[in-house]
């Protein structure tokens, strides 16, 4: 029982730290297209780890099924809305900043 508790705490803390890193990325990264990646961190692994940590806490109940459904729906919809944002920005003519200094 104590092992499951520790596992869920690790997941929750790691997920929160990843969320904060993603938020920092949203502030620090220079242009819009790079900021999409900052949002991507919090959407994929940050949200996933927090929800998995909560699943460890609840055990095999209806709550776990609902958390898993939230996770699946989040994993399908969040890339879709990220793609829609990127495409809308591309169509509207927002030019991405491209650095070629690392290409030989």
């Amino acid at each position: 029982m104590i092992i499951i508790d520790i596992l869920s705490w690790i997941c929750l803390i790691l997920g929160s730290i990843l969320c904060i890193i993603g938020g920092l990325g949203l502030l620090r990264l220079p242009d819009f297209y790079s900021r999409l990646h900052g949002g991507g961190i919090t959407d994929s692994l940050g949200a996933g780890l927090i929800l998995i940590g909560l699943m460890f806490q609840s055990g095999l109940t209806m709550v776990t099924v609902k958390l898993a459904m939230i996770l699946i729906v989040l994993f399908i919809t969040s890339p879709t809305s990220t793609h829609a944002l990127g495409k809308a920005a591309l169509i509207s003519g927002l030019k991405p900043v491209v650095t070629d200094e690392h290409i030989d």
Partner: peptide
């Protein structure tokens, strides 16, 4: 749970900062 909650709240605050600063409308929507 409180620690996780504080982490999420900090992230929300950072996102709000970007929504206020954001130069383009797409930054705000993101």
């Amino acid at each position: 749970f409180i620690a996780a909650m504080i982490g999420i709240l900090v992230t929300m605050a950072l996102a709000l900062c970007r929504a206020l600063l954001g130069p383009t409308v797409y930054d705000r929507i993101l």
